[in-house]
Write a protein that binds this DNA or RNA. Structure first.
Lengths: 224, 224
DNA sequence: CCGATGCCTGACCGATTGGTCAGGTAGAGG
DNA sequence: CCTCTACCTGACCAATCGGTCAGGCATCGG
């Protein structure tokens, strides 16, 4: 790492490393937007620098290279993702777990639409930077959940559907509202999705999935 | 159009326009691959020409410009899409319509994965070339189907779910297997999805959707 | 035989790409 | 005061970008 640690950045501006922190944040946000829209190859450092309001040289001073900046963004998004990959056990309530799964995934797409699109663009390109992650950690996580879903099915708590296809269904349906936002807005004629819209979609997806695979809804959600 | 019509292309090679036809097909296929992987800005004519096995100049001779080539690919994909937008009426059987909807959409993703990813990349970029289509024809089509779904709900043939979210659910779930193919293959550990896999997924999605929104399955699909 | 016509392409163009680098600035420690 | 260190940037670089163009080529009607 050519980057110095945080402690040493007590220098410019108002005394602490506020400038650096702010610039880095600005750069990452701008880069996420541009990479999300145009993919790795389609994004240009000049465009990112312009969005961040900084000279291109300064951007490279902070981030080293285009590839380094891109990888850092991917890792940040994977960290957000991992943060909600909570462990579950076969003793948990299927309805609660599935609803929490759908809700947290929906909120991830909602809170980080640019990061979500960045991820989508990476996968579209054939996942050149994320192959190992997909075939490693993520695959293990899916298999673990799948095993629990199968136990639930054996106990009659849900239909014996293929758990992997079920996980993909939830992923795709939630991811859709970030990745295909332009299509959703164009077709529904909205300017943006409100919090109420997102809540409505979350409830819709939850009911569809629970009912679809034969899971009894939670007690306090029985009406509505 | 700088392109001459088909009749005039009886010239080179073996007498009829076979060479031209073959080259154009090769160019379109190569361009679809490259645009799908890297988006409009990220794709380069040199890469497309290399994939097509033709000099860059020849590619421009046939297609005029990068933008023209891209638009032509988008239009071809929209034509494929429109080809399966068959009209339905409120008198049709909901189960049949929904299953046909899921199956045809799944096969479109299956048969034209590159075109599907091209479309996805276009939407990811904010649909700069497809705004009008989304806000026009496609929106009308969605609204028409939504109206019929609502009639079915009133007649008790299905639950009163929001038809637009339902359509998006089917779109996202089917599109997923083309757009996120790299993720699907990485996680499942496969090299490719077989016809049997696709059929299994289609059946899974159909049952999930039908059961999820309270539609009775077709008579000849009741078991299995 | 003759242009005429349309297919094809190497050479080239200005603009843009990611990245380098020398040098400038400013505060901290001696 | 000077030096050191980290922050910052305009000027520049080779490579690549989309696109142009002059000209080679083969085939045609005459």
């Amino acid at each position: 790492m050519t980057q110095c640690d945080v402690v040493a950045s007590v220098r410019t501006d108002n005394g602490n490393g506020a400038t650096r922190e702010r610039n880095e944040r600005e750069i990452l946000a701008a880069a996420e937007r541009v990479f999300a829209n145009h993919g790795y190859r389609g994004a240009s450092l000049a465009a990112i620098a312009a969005q961040a309001g900084l000279p291109k040289s300064n951007l490279l001073y902070y981030m080293g290279s285009k590839r380094g900046l891109y990888v850092r963004l991917l890792e940040r998004m994977m960290a957000r993702w991992n943060a909600l990959l909570d462990d579950i056990s076969a003793d948990d309530d299927p309805a609660e777990v599935l609803e929490a799964f759908i809700r947290s995934k929906m909120q991830l797409s909602r809170r980080h639409p640019e990061g979500s699109r960045l991820f989508a663009a990476e996968i579209l390109a054939g996942a050149p930077f994320l192959q190992d992650y997909l075939r490693g950690d993520l695959r293990d996580w899916v298999q673990a959940r799948a095993a629990i879903f199968r136990q639930w099915a054996e106990r009659g708590l849900m239909d014996p559907v293929d758990p992997v296809w079920l996980i993909f269904l939830v992923w795709s349906a939630t991811q859709h509202y970030a990745d295909f936002e332009a299509q959703v807005l164009g077709i529904t004629g909205r300017d943006a999705l409100s919090d109420a819209d997102v809540e409505e979609i979350t409830v819709f997806l939850t009911r569809m999935v629970l009912k679809g695979c034969g899971v009894a809804p939670r007690a306090d959600e029985s009406e509505r």
